[in-house]
């Protein structure tokens, strides 16, 4: 009886490993604690302005600005964590959303760390390595920003115009390179996805989805991630059927 109870409470696909039994519960504990505490601490500069300098915005004006912000970004608060979860996992989600810069830094770093350590995405080892990669990228990123902020705008603006113009091209080049890096393992799939993504972004750009609030901000990533997963899983199912036949 006791035996049956145990089986019922733990689905059979959750295996008893160090990862599931020790690591994940700890990740969730750290993640929840630091996530919610982080939200509270984010108000420190606002409170400093209020307490020390007596600068406190009027409620009505702040509500206006907040509503304007929420109606342009509000959907992203929910759609982005869902879109990026299959890529970054639990620990990654806790870290990436507290630190920001997700698609341009956290995901590239986590994925490149997996490549360097020769681990597969989606495995327990891969997830641990991605967490290590992401943590390091946060430390480096904050260090660079700290140096920049202390040097100040006057020093930063001495960057030659040519360099600053060139920096605009860094992210598109990075995305192109990473698509190749990760697409080469599943070439056919990657090609299909690029065609789908181009069609989807063309439609979004033409304003055909203008009836969805703020669609240009989130529809592309959300659509591509979940279409890609759906197509991948369908192929996997198809292949295993073929093997059995």
């Amino acid at each position: 009886m006791r035996e049956r109870n145990k089986i019922w409470r733990k689905p059979k696909w959750i295996t008893k490993t160090f990862y599931n039994e020790k690591y994940m519960p700890k990740v969730n504990r750290i993640g929840k604690l630091t996530g919610y505490l982080g939200v509270v601490l984010a108000f420190a500069p606002a409170l400093m302005l209020a307490v020390v300098y007596g600068i406190l915005p009027k409620g009505a004006a702040l509500a206006t600005a907040f509503i304007a912000g929420a109606s342009s970004f509000g959907v992203l608060w929910f759609v982005e964590p869902i879109s990026y979860f299959p890529v970054v996992g639990s620990a990654g989600t806790y870290m990436a959303f507290l630190s920001g810069n997700i698609s341009n830094m956290r995901i590239p770093c986590a994925s490149m760390a997996q490549v360097a350590a020769d681990t597969k995405p989606g495995t327990e080892e891969g997830s641990v390595i991605a967490t290590i990669g992401m943590a390091i990228s946060i430390i480096i990123n904050v260090s660079v920003l700290t140096v920049g902020a202390i040097l100040g705008a006057s020093v930063l603006s001495m960057l030659p115009d040519g360099v600053r113009a060139a920096l605009n091209f860094l992210l598109p080049a990075l995305f192109g390179a990473l698509l190749v890096q990760f697409g080469m393992r599943l070439k056919k799939h990657a090609l299909i996805m690029v065609v789908i993504a181009l069609a989807l972004y063309f439609a979004i750009g033409m304003g055909w989805f203008a009836w969805l609030p703020g669609a240009s901000n989130w529809l592309g990533t959300l659509g591509c991630v979940f279409l890609s997963i759906a197509i991948g899983l369908a192929t996997l199912k198809n292949n295993s059927k073929k093997e059995q036949a």
């Binding site: 989606g122 598109p172 996997l236």
Partner: peptide
Amino acid sequence: TMTMIASCAIIGVFSAMCASHLI
């Protein structure tokens, strides 16, 4: 299956990022 989900999700993210610049 887990590896497939994660690999496809990565390809999905970067094909989206690329497509936004390409198109």
